[in-house]
Simulated assay, not measured.
Amino acid sequence: MLRGISHDLRTPLTRLKLRVERMEDRAGRQQALSDIDQLDRMIGSTLRYLRDGSSRIDWEICDMSSLLQSICDDFWDTGAQIFFEGPERLEVECSADEMMRAISNLCDNGLKFGSRVTVTLRQEGGFAIVEVADDGPGIPAEMRDKVMEPYTKLGPARSEKGGYGLGLAITAEIVAGHRGELSLRDNHPRGLRVRVALPLHHDRS
């Protein structure tokens, strides 16, 4: 079944890529092709998660500041109120694709339920701390463990926003695969603050 889903998703994506390659606007063409390639990787990663219950990590040294700024820029280009605050550069050993997917999920959730998102980055000892804060309704403390489980939604109001309740579960899986920690906290004066703590380096010997 998953093989059929993969085919069904990638066939129109391939057609779209062929059309985009004929665009005359070079800058727009390159951005669109980059988005299509990212979407293709995300489809593959999501299907692996559904099949195996885990995500594969291709380790590399990544400039987390640049990655987070890129995510914010992409959302900003769609008209979203999203802002990045952090150092000019902070290197983290991670999978850039998986981390982009994880943080993009958090930003998407924040913008879905709020009107403004702030992404912050800082170093605390041997960890990079990424926080995604929104001004939405937040999540009750007693439900915060539950929303980490696949297909979990919090009532009809959130169901109306679309999706299948996989975003936080996949993000939590990616963070755990990086030997990091994800926690949900209150944002003040309102909203949700998601904190991701990632080791700067890994000993895989």
Rank of each mutant, 00 (worst) to 15 (best):
I174W: 13
P156Q: 05
R204I: 06
R10Y: 00
L13C: 04
K17E: 12
L200T: 02
A128F: 11
M143G: 03
S115C: 00
S54F: 04
M1S: 09
Q123H: 03
R195L: 09
N187M: 11
G165E: 11
E93L: 02
C94Q: 06
V117Y: 09
R22T: 08
S54R: 14
M99C: 06
A133G: 00
V130G: 07
D8K: 04
L39R: 02
V20C: 13
F83L: 07
P199H: 10
I36H: 04
S66G: 08
L39F: 03
V92P: 03
C72E: 02
M23W: 15
A128R: 10
L90N: 06
A102W: 07
R15V: 09
D52N: 13
Q123P: 00
G86M: 15
Q30G: 03
T118P: 00
E93V: 05
D52W: 11
D35F: 09
E91T: 03
H7A: 11
G136P: 08
M143C: 12
F75Y: 15
N187E: 10
R89D: 01
G162D: 02
R190L: 11
E131H: 03
E88W: 12
I43T: 08
K17T: 12
E149T: 12
F127H: 15
E160G: 06
V196S: 05
I82N: 05
H7N: 05
S65W: 14
V92F: 03
S34E: 01
A102C: 13
H202Y: 02
M143T: 07
R48M: 03
D97F: 06
A102P: 03
S205C: 02
L106K: 13
S159F: 05
G79N: 10
A80L: 08
Y151A: 09
L182N: 10
K146S: 14
S183W: 04
R185P: 00
H188S: 10
R193M: 13
G125W: 12
R195D: 00
I129N: 05
Q30D: 09
K17Q: 15
G136Y: 12
I82A: 09
L154T: 10
I61S: 14
S45F: 07
S183R: 15
Q69S: 03
G79S: 06
E124W: 08
I139C: 11
C107N: 08
G162K: 04
I174T: 14
E173R: 13
R195F: 01
P189Y: 10
L68W: 06
R179H: 14
K153C: 01
R193S: 10
V194L: 11
I82C: 10
N187Y: 06
I129E: 10
M42V: 11
S205A: 08
I5K: 09
D108G: 01
S55M: 11
R190N: 02
D186P: 02
V147G: 02
M1P: 00
R144C: 06
T171C: 14
L39E: 00
L121A: 05
M1G: 05
L18E: 13
G163L: 12
I36D: 00
P12Q: 00
R41T: 06
L184T: 09
P140W: 08
G136M: 13
Q123Y: 01
V175A: 03
G180C: 01
N109Y: 14
T46R: 15
L184H: 12
S183P: 00
I174G: 10
E181D: 02
K146Q: 15
M148R: 15
A176I: 01
S159T: 09
E93S: 07
A128E: 12
G177K: 14
D52E: 15
D108H: 07
V92D: 03
C62A: 09
